[in-house]
């Protein structure tokens, strides 16, 4: 059987007033693949991610997703009920700022359990146990299960956000600068964790980052965005070691050894 992409984005366009933030962007995401989208701020990469993830309406284009059940659906044209159900079961979204992806005053356990409760799980003890298991997975002290993440460090909050997303075993996870705003040492630990989780769960991921180091470590393939358009794409090592487009060359040369 021939493998098919899990996600196909075509001709995606989003405007803000006179400005076109994303213009005719398309890409494919394959099962188990990590796709990095790089570019400097203002290049449209976060807008692209938000449109793909249904957080921002797109003006044009299709986001074809092959569901667990089999048939492919256009996420942008899907009835809202179905779209929202897919988003909270088969998809995940990790925000740059954990504050946007967590309920800071709800316990870590409640944060992890929310998606399960939305699916109808109604046993407190089991929900809490599932949360404890996932905290261990993301290397958070399980004794903190009843503490609210407001008191967590930035790195812990980010790991909790990841656990909250992965608890329903999503097939596609979108991440917006997941390591942004973290100290370098904390970043390294988070990157290791992400690499392990991606490998162990086989999830497909799209990661938006301005940091080519992060892209090098996590992504199998990269897209380079500039001014709302994709200027170059390819396997990570090829693209970073032998950039073709002048803009990519500039990006790579201005980054410290990646």
């Amino acid at each position: 059987m021939k493998e098919q992409p899990i996600l196909e984005v075509r001709d995606l366009t989003r405007r803000f007033g006179l400005r076109t933030a994303v213009r005719d962007v398309g890409f494919e995401l394959w099962p188990g693949e990590v796709l990095g989208i790089v570019g400097e701020s203002g290049s449209g990469k976060t807008t692209l991610l938000n449109c793909v993830g249904g957080r921002l309406p797109a003006d044009d284009g299709t986001v074809l997703y092959r569901t667990a059940a089999g048939p492919a659906v256009d996420m942008l044209a899907l009835a809202e009920a179905k779209r929202r159900r897919l988003l909270r079961t088969e998809w995940g979204f990790v925000h740059q700022n954990p504050r946007d992806g967590l309920r800071l005053d709800v316990s870590a356990g409640g944060n992890v359990g929310e998606r399960l409760m939305a699916l109808g799980h109604r046993h407190y003890g089991n929900l809490r146990q599932a949360a404890i298991d996932w905290l261990a997975q993301v290397e958070i002290d399980t004794a903190r299960v009843d503490d609210a993440p407001r008191a967590f460090s930035g790195g812990m909050q980010q790991r909790l956000q990841i656990a909250r997303n992965l608890v329903t075993h999503p097939r596609v996870v979108l991440m917006d600068e997941p390591t942004g705003g973290l100290d370098v040492s904390v970043q390294a630990r988070l990157l290791d964790l992400l690499r392990r989780l991606v490998r162990e769960t086989g999830v497909s991921a799209v990661i938006v980052t301005h940091d080519l180091g992060v892209a090098r470590l996590l992504a199998d393939r990269l897209l380079v965005m500039k001014g709302g358009e994709v200027v170059e794409g390819g396997l990570t090592d090829r693209l970073l070691d032998d950039p073709h487009h002048p803009y990519t060359q500039l990006l790579v040369s201005s980054a410290l050894s990646v």
């Binding site: 309920r103 316990s107 356990g109 409640g110 359990g113 998606r115 409760m117 939305a118 109604r122 407190y124």
Partner: peptide, 10 residues
Amino acid sequence: YGAMHVKLYE
């Protein structure tokens, strides 16, 4: 209605 149970969980 999942989020409603989050409150009770808390």
